[in-house]
C-alpha cells in the first residue's frame, strides 16, 4: 500500500468540480483508492463519496492506494492534487 497526505488548498474545499476531477482521474488506475478525512473514508473513484467527506479548505486528506499500479497511481494522484486538483495532463483547445 502507498500512502500520502494532501492538505486542501482550494478555498471552496472538496466541491463537485475538484471531486469530479479527482474521481475521473482516479478511475484511470486499477488500484483501490481510499481517501480519509474527518474520521470518514471515501472511495476515491466516486464523486459523491468524495464530496460527502465534507472536506473544506485546510482539511488534510490521507490517500491509501492499494493494487498492482499503486506506485504510479500514488505518484500521479499526488501531483494531480499538488496542481490544485487539476488535471494538468489534459489537452487544451486548439
Amino acid at each position: 500500500m502507498k500512502q500520502f497526505t494532501y492538505c486542501i488548498e482550494d478555498p471552496n474545499g472538496m466541491h463537485a468540480r475538484p471531486a469530479g476531477m479527482l474521481a475521473t482521474f482516479a478511475k484511470r488506475f486499477d488500484s483501490d483508492i481510499r481517501v480519509l478525512a474527518n474520521g470518514k473514508t471515501a472511495d476515491g473513484k466516486r464523486l459523491l463519496s468524495l464530496m460527502s467527506l465534507g472536506a473544506v479548505h485546510g482539511t488534510e486528506l490521507t490517500f491509501c492506494i492499494t493494487g498492482k499500479d499503486e506506485e504510479t497511481a500514488a505518484a500521479r494522484i499526488e501531483s494531480f492534487c499538488r496542481a490544485g486538483m487539476k488535471d494538468t495532463e489534459e489537452k487544451k483547445e486548439d
Binding site: A16, A23, K45, L48, S49
Partner: peptide
C-alpha cells in the same frame, strides 16, 4: 461536466 460525472456516479 459535473452532471456527466454524476450520471456515472456509482453511489
Amino acid at each position: 461536466e459535473i452532471h456527466g460525472m454524476l450520471l456515472h456516479d456509482d453511489d
